[in-house]
Simulated assay, not measured.
Amino acid sequence: MDQIAPPAEPVQVIRIERGDQGGPPWEQRMVAVLRTRQLKWRTEEAYRGWGRRFARWLGDKPVEEAGGDDIRRYLEHLAVEGKVSASTQRQALNALIFLVRETLGRDPGDCTGYRPGRATRRIPVVLSQRECQALFAQLPDHHRLMAQLMYGAGLRLMELLRLRIQDVQFEQGIVIVRQGKGGKDRVSVLPESLRAPLMEHRERLRLLFAEDRRADLPGVWLPPAVENKIPTAGVQWAWQWFFPSRQLAIDPRSGIQRRHHIQDAALQNAVRKAARAAHLSQRVTPHTLRHSFATHLLAGGADIRTVQELLGHADVTTTMIYTHVLNRPGLAVRSPLDNL
């Protein structure tokens, strides 16, 4: 397996787009409120992005003068001309309500009555166990370990990348997901077959940790609540990323150069290439591994409530979608062709 420790030459720095304070006054105010509320960076990116698109759509009308009728007409525009899904439309609504109510301090009024976006409920793409093995065989060692853990524990991509050293607990045989979707923590299973390679990986990380401490690098990023309570946690072993990047990165909010976790695009690209190399016919992404985890558990007889907890679904109806991709969803049905 590739070594994690950085090369001897000067460490490269990934130039992530700097998290500026916003351009126009409304965006600067939005950034200030978002960061005061300690919302995630991706939420900030999404909300600011919708704010900019809304501002362009408004044309000459200032964002500060926009109200519920403007929001309603913009959502209608997204559905009719943009052909967006209902979920995308809801995200836009949430962002614009936040902009008007929380940022500008105005009542947006009635935003209902717009045409809803297209409702989609797609059957998830699921690999067979043989196809999972073929995919893993085509991945480089470090990406293979990540993909296997994602499949073996049913993790979302960002849940995998945000794992800390303390979150992979070998004695208990569990993986702790902190601040998953909806801001909830949960526990999933640590695959027994990955115990040895994950422990070896962790030991190699000690070399990188030692290098960073000798270089007196700033600590890793911490949730604001943790940073306020334990200011030195960022340089403590337990809080280091379990899958750190080889290169340093610029923190998009503070501008601090520090060690970040591996970028999501790196694993996404690796999985796509591996799927092509394995000659898989489906469109495969890292999230396909989570779908496969759930479906294979249900096919093996696992209780759907247990699978729901492992996936972190708030509603069991979300988990039920995986019953539709089993060979015998609901009652066992045999094709009439097989009786000829």
Rank of each mutant, 00 (worst) to 15 (best):
Q3G: 01
Q3V: 02
A5F: 04
P7M: 00
A8S: 15
G19M: 00
G19R: 07
P24T: 09
R29P: 00
A32Y: 12
L34H: 01
R35C: 06
A46E: 13
R48L: 15
G59L: 10
E64V: 08
R72C: 06
L75K: 02
S85R: 14
T88D: 04
P108N: 12
T112C: 11
G113I: 06
R115D: 05
R115G: 05
T120Y: 14
P124H: 10
S128Q: 08
F136W: 11
L139M: 04
D141Y: 12
H142A: 09
Q148M: 15
L149E: 00
A153H: 05
L157R: 12
D167R: 13
F170M: 08
V177P: 01
K181W: 12
R186P: 04
E200A: 12
R206P: 06
V226I: 13
P231T: 05
T232C: 03
G234Y: 00
F243C: 02
P244S: 06
R246W: 09
Q247H: 15
L248P: 00
D251T: 05
P252W: 03
S254I: 11
A270L: 09
T295G: 01
A299E: 15
G300H: 07
G301T: 05
T306I: 13
V307P: 03
Q308Y: 13
Q308G: 13
A314N: 12
V316I: 13
H324W: 08
N327D: 15
R328L: 15
